[in-house]
């Protein structure tokens, strides 16, 4: 009985379907991929394309005003010294400085946490804490800590004799530095996670061999650790730079757009002002598309450099 059924099934499968109903085998691949492709197109490509389309218009945020103006919004950016170019410069200063500090602090912390000591697991958990705190809480906490009248930082700096007069952290001269320090504290755990994971996979024999060759801690770091974590750092730098260059919430919550915000008005903040303050959606879309293209170009450039270095 069992043999008969098996035989029948085999025969059924071997028989070709009528020509009109047959679906070619490779089409099934497309059919199965379709939901994912539609999702990607709908959620990622459509907004980008729509933003680009809007950027070709003089469009009001809510009034029915929408005129096609071609690339005028982009041309206007070239002459926008105080808005666009200044925002680009401030954004680059913020992103490069912040990512640089995050790398230094993050890699140092990861190396420390890779060593064996009592309480290491607890220390690893604590190190990740800043990354888990919601941004609004970070801002409120830091506003207290950095307050020049009653902040704990003022007390520590004065009690330790480092400064005589309190530093006004939220003055026009210092607000950029303050934001860089706060962003470093908040985001360095991201570097720790990636770096620590890679450090744990480095073969200890490499260090042993380096020691035998007489390499000190610095040379071991430079010749063993750094080459081993290089690929991870490449990805971390790329991601962190993109995140920091487009950072909005931290800067907005600390400084807003006007007053103190004038001194840290990066491109994302400027884009918001153009879109929701001046109600110029077309101009705001041109800024966001430009921001997007800059990051694409940066990524391509970055990958090219990295690949070239890999081949050397």
């Amino acid at each position: 009985m069992h043999d008969a059924v098996t035989q029948a099934q085999t025969i059924d499968h071997s028989e070709p379907l009528p020509r009109g109903r047959r679906i070619p085998e490779h089409w099934w691949g497309y059919v199965l991929l379709a939901p994912a492709v539609i999702l990607v197109l709908g959620l990622i490509l459509y907004p980008v394309i729509y933003s680009f389309w809007i950027s070709l218009h003089a469009k009001h945020a809510y009034l029915p005003i929408e005129n096609f103006i071609g690339l005028d919004n982009y041309a206007a950016l070239l002459d926008d010294q105080e808005g666009f170019w200044r925002g680009l410069k401030l954004g680059a200063i913020f992103a490069v400085s912040s990512v640089g500090l995050q790398l230094v602090v993050g890699v140092s912390a990861a190396m420390l946490l890779n060593e064996s000591f009592i309480g290491r697991t607890f220390a690893r958990g604590v190190a990740l804490f800043p990354y888990m705190v919601p941004m609004i809480v970070v801002v409120i906490l830091m506003r207290w800590i950095f307050n020049d009248s009653y902040g704990v930082l003022k007390y520590l700096l004065q009690a330790s004799g480092i400064v005589d007069d309190p530093i006004v952290w939220f003055s026009p001269d210092n607000v950029m530095l303050t934001l860089i320090l706060v962003s470093t504290w908040t985001f360095f755990p991201f570097v720790v996670i990636g770096t620590l994971a890679r450090l744990q996979t480095i073969d200890p024999e490499l260090y042993a061999a380096a020691k035998v060759d007489g390499a000190g801690p610095l040379r071991r770091f430079y010749h063993v650790t750094l080459p081993q974590i290089r690929n991870v750092l490449f990805v971390i730098v790329l991601l962190r730079f993109m995140f920091m260059f487009t950072k909005f919430d931290l800067i907005w919550l600390f400084a807003g757009a006007g007053g103190l915000g004038y001194y840290v008005r990066t491109l994302p903040i400027y884009t918001y002002v153009r879109t929701f303050g001046e109600l110029q959606v077309g101009a705001g879309a041109a800024l966001s598309v430009t921001l997007f293209l800059m990051l694409v170009v940066f990524s391509i450039f970055y990958f090219t450099i990295f690949r070239r270095d890999e081949q050397l």
């Binding site: 006007g258 004038y262 929701f276 303050g277």
Partner: peptide
Amino acid sequence: IAEIAGSTILVDMVTEVVQG
């Protein structure tokens, strides 16, 4: 008025003089 108020034009003017 809404667009001028929502822009940073006046705020920048004051900030540039008073702080800058």
